[in-house]
């Protein structure tokens, strides 16, 4: 009994003697934990004078049971004037954590105030994920909110009216838009999703069901008909152009545009041809000019020189 009293006396007097302080310790210390983001929150101290600064320390199961009941200060939450601090980084394992806060004003320091009960991140509130379901033509797409690398998503989707045939897809990287399915024209598809955190082996509830309708084949034709029509006209024009060009080439190589000799022009009777005197001489005869050999030799010598 005496020892207990002694400890009590030491426990209550030593902080007072050391700091000489009457600064009250912070109160109402709680943890707000949603989607694996943890914040320590406490009530502000209302004391006159200088601004009050707060510091936080944490202790996991390891520090408590194997490292002499030690505490580790959180650098980012030391001498802060806010009455809350993000402790996500240090609540890093799925074990019970203890946290404590101390107030300071100038040289005065309060005693440590500890969290009421231990905190295990397994109790975090997992909120159903936000998702955007889209239909891009016949593609069923889903966009999931980004919650950090600890989160996976289980996406369930089905064709409306075929609820017994539900497909699922696990999405690990929520940064991108995910393609779920190629839809049938005009059909309505529905999607819901839940988050899963491997580190605590827990899932959130499912989000609200969201449905989209695939592009109708009618809508499809309304959008694409003019494009098809233009493509058709262009194709016909190109074909026509090609055919015309081919004909021209054929005509040039097979039927050159050269006048036929008169002799090949058939008249009514063979006698007509014999008696025909349209041309006095053959064309080739007229152009041939026979040179005497000595003149030819002179040309050669002239050329050679």
């Amino acid at each position: 009994m005496a020892t207990r009293f002694g400890t009590f006396l030491l426990g209550s007097l030593v902080p007072l003697l050391v700091s000489g302080a009457l600064l009250p310790a912070p109160q109402n210390i709680t943890i707000l934990s949603t989607n694996m983001k943890h914040f320590l929150v406490w009530s502000p101290l209302t004391v006159p004078g200088e601004a009050v600064k707060y510091s936080i320390e944490f202790q996991g199961e390891y520090e408590r049971d194997y490292a002499n009941d030690s505490w580790i200060p959180i650098g980012e939450c030391t001498d802060i004037s806010a009455t809350q601090c993000d402790i996500t980084e240090d609540i890093s394992a799925t074990v019970p954590y203890n946290l404590r806060v101390r107030a300071a004003q100038g040289t005065e320091v309060s005693r440590w105030a500890t969290l009421n009960g231990l905190f295990n991140r397994v109790t975090t509130s997992l909120i159903p994920p936000m998702l955007t379901v889209m239909a891009d033509g016949y593609h069923l797409l889903v966009e999931l909110e980004h919650l950090g690398p600890a989160f996976e998503f289980l996406v369930l989707y089905w064709r409306k009216g075929q609820e017994n045939q539900v497909y699922e897809k696990v999405v690990r990287d929520s940064n991108t838009t995910v393609h779920l399915e190629t839809m049938e024209a005009g059909a309505e598809y529905c999607v819901k999703a839940q988050t899963y955190v491997e580190a605590i082996n827990r899932s959130s509830n499912f989000s609200q069901v969201q449905c989209v309708k695939a592009a109708d084949s009618k809508t499809f034709s309304v959008i694409f008909a003019p494009i098809f029509f233009i493509a058709f006209v262009v194709a016909v024009f190109i074909l026509f152009l090609l055919a015309w060009k081919t004909c021209q080439v054929c005509q040039y190589s097979c039927c050159p545009n050269e006048g036929l000799p008169d002799t090949l022009k058939l008249t009514e009777s063979p006698a007509g041809i014999i008696n025909y005197r349209g041309e006095e001489a053959e064309k080739c005869d007229m152009s041939v000019h026979v040179q005497p050999p000595d003149e030819l030799l002179r040309f050669w010598i002239h050329d050679a020189l």
Partner: peptide, 14 residues
Amino acid sequence: LRRKTSPLANTFVR
């Protein structure tokens, strides 16, 4: 290194 090894130590305990 105490703060940085704490996550590993606590996970090992778990």
